[in-house]
Design a protein around this nucleic acid. Structure first.
Lengths: 249, 249
DNA sequence: CCCAAATGTCTATTATTCTAGACAACCGTA
DNA sequence: TACGGTTGTCTAGAATAATAGACATTTGGG
């Protein structure tokens, strides 16, 4: 049913579960949510509590309540984001969304944090270009990313990205015709602060964190990224290596 | 700082953030948490609220409060679980833990759910062996999994697993000397019900869900799994294909 | 031995969340 | 138009979470 005294309000637990059920396609036959009284009985809570939950789903644009009629499901999709040797953001989402857009929030050049320097095989204190982006699909924010590039080789990265709105295209302008993913680490945290705001999440929502290293075709690391995905809007799909690209190693 | 009126109790937000900070190695110099009064000031809450948060961390065995002294950090590690073409549970964790153990909770043979049948390329209504497992490392539960195997070919799977406590070894007993991963999908949900209990999580905690399909070396699907990882104990690492195994076509 | 600094425990109060019930407003349909 | 089923709104009270303050207990060190 629903768990009490756990530090998570009942309405939030219910909202999370209904969001999941909707994404799961559970109410597809009718396209409507069950009536509030039915949900209240099912979860063993008061109708008002269910209403709080539905209000947040309505706020997120997932359902729409219509007086006298019921509550209709407005959106149920969870985008599938492929992770492979040749992961690219917009290509990956392909035809799942029409309107795929990257926006740069911020960029600067500064000494790389220790983990980044190590991942990129740079000495401590080496400067890196840092770019903060938000990516949206069909006008909904999907992910937020922090990218690092060695400043010596990619001094113009921020400008190139601003111009092209694509990492792949920016690399191409800077004479990297192709690149591959060396590693991806995936973990999950609760949304907070900036990410929460930019991804339009409510606190308690889940963020999938993918930390990736890309290399050029000679195996030299050229990019370190930390991408935060709104977990209720995407799933990550780990693909086998069938991209038709010859092994560069 | 910390967000109010969000459906997530302050003590839980603080617990989540401290757990993350500890996993992050933030207090490694001293091995001690800051005093409760300091944390209370930092988060802008009452000391009692911080105490609630610390109590749950103590409960999880992450910290230990010592009167008159302070609160010591007991454990800070997050296991790294590799996902690749040759993902295997115990091998993957390798030397990160001493005591890696799989336990079978339940097994039966029944008609496969639609998604499973489709993933395994079986007709609707085909029977499958279902096995429920819990995996632990160093006596802490790490993941909970539901595995499906086509019943015709792997009728003895449950017995073989019970005997060997390993999927790989069980396959070997059933004449599958090797197998590879075809696909892995990763998403994240909030813990609830059975998973919460078996993984010893508190509600609101995050679960990483990895849905995988394995095939034998001729490409025939032999296993469908849905593994739920406690997100505060593991990260998933997506590996490049460097295992030295020839492409099976 | 005594003190400073920590955690442990208790009481009281306030704010927030959840429950309970009643009724209004609205929609589709008979 | 009347009615059943639904969402919307209001009031009141109970349960839970958070704050506030005081003081006890324990430890390590001067």
């Amino acid at each position: 049913m629903v768990e009490r005294q756990t530090g998570v309000a009942l309405w939030r637990q219910i909202a999370d579960r209904m969001r999941l059920a909707i994404n799961n396609g559970d109410f597809d036959e009718t396209g409507m949510m069950p009536p509030e009284t039915v949900l209240a009985a099912r979860f063993g809570v008061n109708r008002h509590t269910v209403r709080s939950a539905m209000a947040t789903l309505a706020d997120e644009g997932i359902v729409r309540a219509m007086q006298g009629v019921g509550t209709r499901i407005e959106r149920r999709d969870r985008l599938s984001f492929p992770i492979s040797r040749r992961t690219r953001f917009s290509q990956g989402l392909g035809n799942q969304a029409h309107d795929i857009e990257g926006r740069m929030l911020e960029a600067d050049t500064d000494v790389a944090p220790a983990v980044v320097a190590q991942a990129l095989g740079l000495g401590a204190g080496t400067p890196c270009v840092r770019i903060e982006t938000v990516n949206s699909a069909d006008k909904r924010p999907i992910s937020r990313a922090t990218h690092y590039f060695p400043a010596e080789r990619f001094a113009e990265m921020a400008e190139a990205y601003e111009r092209t709105r694509s990492i792949t295209a920016a690399f191409r302008e800077l004479d990297v015709s192709d690149y591959v993913r060396r590693s991806t680490e995936i973990s999950a945290i609760h949304a907070e602060g900036d990410d929460m705001r930019h991804l339009k999440l409510s606190p308690g929502a889940i963020i999938l964190v993918a930390t990736a290293i890309n290399t050029d075709l000679t195996g030299i690391p050229i990019q370190y990224s930390r991408t935060r995905f709104a977990a209720d809007r995407v799933k990550l799909t780990v693909e086998p290596e069938n991209d038709g690209i010859g092994d560069p190693g």
